[in-house]
């Protein structure tokens, strides 16, 4: 029960460490443990920092929004199998993950609304616009995995990949899922809601523990999304020689590494530009993907 959140936090810490190293290399600085340590010193600093008070802030909604983001990430991994073990292998695990991910919409809008500050509010609205763009292609990507396995239970999705991994015949869905992960973690090219052009957007006014929770939420979501990609497309714990949990761990870290590496390669995309790409290019592509998967499943059944 506690293992899943612990693994999630560890993965998130590793992702932050890798990102710090990548940032240092990017800036031409030396990569060392000290660099990583300084980044992680933010945690005690934020824990002890005096929170900022703002006039006429809606404290209740603000706090609620900030908490929802990391809590949703933790709840989402309860259905993700680690090896062959799952905290709760719900019969609708896939929809559960999607529902928890959509909670970040409410969380970030509230985190933007709460502080009664224009920059934060614009950041919150930016996330909603971004959500409208990334959510539908992401849903179709999840649907293609579910169609391939003919089940919404993640255990069945993994079992269906004992022969061929879904990534091989659902490459579009896999890539769209990865883009969706960066989008709901609002990191890298999708850091638009917390953009520097907006003085930090949703992060503009949060301070102290709230800031820690919101920042942690981003990296927890990145890790949760990477962990979800493994049972969905990469065969879960299936693999030769090593035990299932080792394969799960290895694949999750590989996806996480790919995401952290990719984050710095792509510039930030404005939501109004991404929405057109998502609706005119990605959505038809993912729909064709679902159609292809459905046809393969029908042919296999001999129908």
């Amino acid at each position: 029960m506690l293992l899943a959140p612990a693994l999630l936090v560890t993965g998130a810490l590793l992702a932050v460490a890798a990102d710090t190293c990548a940032a240092a290399q990017h800036a031409g600085r030396r990569r060392s443990l000290g660099t990583v340590g300084r980044r992680l010193l933010e945690v005690p600093r934020l824990l002890t920092a005096q929170p900022r008070t703002l006039p006429a802030a809606d404290r209740l909604l603000w706090r609620l929004g900030v908490i929802v983001v990391p809590v949703g990430a933790v709840l989402s991994v309860l259905v993700v199998p680690f090896g062959h073990r799952t905290v709760a292998d719900l019969s609708v695990g896939l929809v559960w993950f999607n529902a928890m991910e959509v909670l970040t919409w409410a969380g970030l809008w509230l985190a933007g609304w709460g502080p009664n500050s224009a920059f934060s509010l614009v950041g919150g609205y930016r996330f909603v616009a971004q959500g409208l763009a990334y959510e539908l292609p992401l849903m179709f990507a999840l649907i293609s995995a579910a169609t391939g396995a003919q089940s919404l239970r993640l255990g069945d999705v993994v079992a269906a990949q004992s022969g061929l991994w879904f990534v091989v015949w659902m490459p579009v869905a896999f890539l769209v899922h990865l883009a969706g992960v960066l989008a709901f973690a609002f990191l890298g090219p999708f850091a638009y809601p917390a953009g520097r052009d907006l003085a930090g957007g949703v992060l503009a006014e949060v301070s102290g523990v709230d800031r820690l929770l919101l920042q942690a939420g981003r990296w927890l979501w990145l890790t949760a999304g990477a962990a979800m990609a493994v049972p969905l497309f990469l065969g879960g714990g299936n693999g030769p020689v090593l035990p299932a949990w080792a394969w799960s761990l290895f694949k999750t870290l590989a996806v996480l590494g790919l995401l952290v590496y990719g984050m710095r390669r792509v510039p930030v995309v404005r939501a109004d530009r991404y929405v057109e790409l998502a609706w005119l290019v990605l959505m038809p592509l993912t729909m064709v993907q679902v159609l292809a998967v459905a046809l393969v499943v029908l042919v296999r059944q001999g129908g």
């Binding site: 929809v95 559960w96 529902a99 809008w109 909603v128 959500g131 409208l132």
Partner: peptide, 21 residues
């Protein structure tokens, strides 16, 4: 009815955020 229950949560969150806007 787990599917309907979770889908209600999913849809309502999206809907209410858009409605709030």
């Amino acid at each position: 009815l787990p599917y309907l229950g979770v889908v209600i949560v999913l849809m309502m969150v999206m809907e209410m955020v858009v409605m709030a806007v």
